[in-house]
Measured scan of single mutants.
Amino acid sequence: QVALSRTQVCGILREELFQGDAFHQSDTHIFIIMGASGDLAKKKIYPTIWWLFRDGLLPENTFIVGYARSRLTVADIRKQSEPFFKATPEEKLKLEDFFARNSYVAGQYDDAASYQRLNSHMNALHLGSQANRLFYLALPPTVYEAVTKNIHESCMSQIGWNRIIVEKPFGRDLQSSDRLSNHISSLFREDQIYRIDHYLGKEMVQNLMVLRFANRIFGPIWNRDNIACVILTFKEPFGTEGRGGYFDEFGIIRDVMQNHLLQMLCLVAMEKPASTNSDDVRDEKVKVLKCISEVQANNVVLGQYVGNPDGEGEATKGYLDDPTVPRGSTTATFAAVVLYVENERWDGVPFILRCGKALNERKAEVRLQFHDVAGDIFHQQCKRNELVIRVQPNEAVYTKMMTKKPGMFFNPEESELDLTYGNRYKNVKLPDAYERLILDVFCGSQMHFVRSDELREAWRIFTPLLHQIELEKPKPIPYIYGSRGPTEADELMKRVGFQYEGTYKWVNPHKL
């Protein structure tokens, strides 16, 4: 086992960053958080920038500027975001240094004079007029057009580079997404736009490419001749908990499936790229999406959770019991969808996408189930092999396979070949997804960000279904809070070829 401390991990990262040409360590950078008073800024962006600063992973002359409508001070920003920093008493001095680099400007999102004030403020910072500028839009999409237009007109660096990070949702359907994309691309070049999907920053999602293309053993079996089906799962054990009003506007397909799960599907299904260059990788992902037809209604199961009468606390409440959810809402909190990649490698292999709230566990994984062994000599005792990439929690890679049961006879039983990170790298604290992705933006690497043509294809696949749901308002199937979801989803999976045995229990190697 390799035991690495946080300091050692960050030392390795620093070495990698400083050796590259793309990370300008000594240049002045300004990180501007648009929507600095909001939840995302408070819980994710400010803490992430602090962790990067604490670990010495930001360029040395980096300033952080918050911008929002609320009249706040840096002290206010500190008060609301610091509880999420997880700072230790030993880091007190470092924390003071961090907040000394912070400033805040209040202004409207659609007022040109406010942006001119913001620009004057940035120019007044040390070497601010020639600094590289990175704008993070932690804002609702309704203000994107006004904000990007004003940034472009008043706040661009004339000497350094300018980059803009856009948070999902990128529209509600193909038409609104196209409108937003066309607007942003009329102001910024594609190499300046970073559409963030934080799932692409997760260690195991990034590991998929290495697993596939750096190991000879997987190449020959990664196709329709050997793989019976692919299941991509995202499960949350909690409901909307008072935030249903926002969720109800989008629903589970827009929230998770059309982005996170579809991105994971691309990494499983794509061909080997010409290189690890950002556009070479994204070219292959677009090719996969172009091979997927629009979702067919007979390959869809929609569910909505109801309270568990035997549960406790939140578990007793259904989705419609959330006071922020519109009365009688038919918005799905669970969806199972089957897609097919219609190309030579994957023809006929079902890709089953499942996601839901208020389920029995927290889990995100990719599961490849292989065909049955031909010419069975073990009297149907063999179960199908599976390769599982567990994204969260407890990152893991393992192969479910058959071995001989101890004893006199040739009785096979299920076991696993474990390729888990935790076994080799004991207690290594890896940077989280937002840390990686923000560092990628500083480096100018777009590999783990969504390109406009990729986004367009993703919406093309799901828009007809979303429009049909909005028009017909089908009643989702009720499922109990804390269950596996509607049984109809299991029946759909069985119908397209997935075999669920229920006889195997994964042993978490992190707890051995």
Score class of each variant (00 low, 15 high):
477 I>V: 11
258 Q>W: 02
376 D>R: 06
486 P>D: 04
480 I>A: 14
392 Q>R: 00
421 Y>V: 07
500 Y>L: 06
438 I>K: 00
287 K>R: 11
445 S>R: 12
405 K>L: 11
394 N>A: 08
483 S>N: 08
340 Y>C: 08
432 D>I: 07
498 F>T: 08
332 A>Y: 04
360 N>H: 06
398 Y>D: 03
359 L>R: 01
286 V>K: 13
478 P>V: 08
419 L>A: 06
379 H>E: 13
282 R>K: 04
449 F>N: 01
334 F>Q: 09
287 K>W: 06
263 Q>I: 03
500 Y>M: 07
266 C>H: 03
289 L>I: 14
302 L>P: 03
355 C>S: 08
262 L>C: 08
417 L>H: 04
418 D>Y: 01
341 V>F: 07
443 C>W: 13
470 E>V: 08
406 P>T: 06
398 Y>H: 02
337 V>T: 14
318 G>W: 01
275 S>E: 05
505 K>I: 11
452 S>L: 06
370 F>Q: 00
333 T>M: 00
410 F>H: 15
351 F>D: 05
318 G>A: 14
447 M>Q: 03
269 A>I: 06
379 H>M: 09
414 E>N: 07
369 Q>N: 05
350 P>K: 05
321 D>Q: 08
289 L>F: 07
475 K>T: 15
341 V>E: 00
263 Q>N: 04
401 M>H: 11
415 S>F: 04
332 A>S: 11
374 A>T: 11
329 S>K: 04
296 Q>D: 14
469 I>Y: 12
338 V>D: 06
276 T>V: 12
470 E>A: 13
258 Q>A: 07
391 V>D: 04
320 L>V: 10
290 K>M: 06
485 G>L: 06
412 P>H: 09
377 I>N: 09
309 P>S: 11
464 P>Y: 07
277 N>L: 13
464 P>I: 07
465 L>Y: 10
492 L>N: 00
340 Y>E: 12
413 E>C: 10
368 L>K: 04
352 I>R: 02
376 D>V: 05
467 H>Q: 11
487 T>W: 13
276 T>I: 08
344 E>D: 08
301 V>I: 13
381 Q>S: 12
424 R>G: 03
397 V>E: 00
387 L>D: 02
473 K>Y: 11
285 K>H: 00
397 V>R: 04
417 L>D: 04
472 E>R: 15
325 V>L: 07
295 V>K: 08
355 C>I: 04
352 I>E: 00
418 D>T: 01
442 F>A: 14
325 V>E: 01
464 P>W: 08
472 E>Y: 13
478 P>E: 12
417 L>I: 01
293 S>T: 15
383 K>C: 14
262 L>F: 10
443 C>E: 10
441 V>H: 03
354 R>V: 02
359 L>W: 04
359 L>F: 04
325 V>I: 07
273 P>K: 04
501 E>F: 10
286 V>G: 08
374 A>R: 10
394 N>M: 09
422 G>C: 12
501 E>T: 13
256 V>D: 02
501 E>Y: 11
342 E>H: 14
428 V>F: 12
283 D>E: 07
395 E>N: 07
348 G>N: 08
485 G>D: 00
388 V>L: 05
306 V>W: 11
488 E>D: 14
403 T>W: 07
393 P>L: 03
354 R>H: 06
457 E>G: 08
380 Q>M: 10
363 K>N: 07
331 T>D: 00
437 L>T: 01
389 I>W: 01
359 L>I: 05
255 D>P: 02
404 K>F: 00
312 E>Y: 12
481 Y>D: 02
459 W>M: 02
257 M>L: 11
456 R>E: 07
271 E>G: 07
278 S>N: 14
346 W>H: 03
399 T>W: 11
436 R>D: 03
411 N>D: 13
341 V>C: 11
275 S>T: 12
419 L>K: 06
287 K>A: 10
488 E>L: 10
492 L>D: 00
311 G>T: 10
275 S>K: 04
285 K>T: 04
302 L>Y: 10
310 D>N: 14
406 P>N: 06
283 D>S: 08
307 G>W: 01
345 R>V: 10
276 T>Y: 00
345 R>A: 12
494 K>C: 14
473 K>S: 11
410 F>D: 14
293 S>R: 15
294 E>W: 08
458 A>Y: 02
428 V>M: 10
270 M>N: 02
423 N>F: 10
291 C>A: 12
268 V>D: 01
370 F>M: 09
284 E>V: 09
354 R>S: 03
318 G>D: 13
330 T>R: 13
255 D>N: 00
381 Q>Y: 07
488 E>Q: 13
457 E>W: 09
434 Y>E: 01
431 P>E: 08
481 Y>P: 05
457 E>V: 09
300 V>E: 05
430 L>E: 05
412 P>K: 10
464 P>K: 09
380 Q>K: 12
264 M>S: 04
291 C>L: 14
418 D>E: 07
417 L>R: 03
311 G>C: 12
499 Q>R: 12
435 E>T: 10
370 F>W: 07
418 D>V: 00
340 Y>V: 08
397 V>F: 11
487 T>P: 14
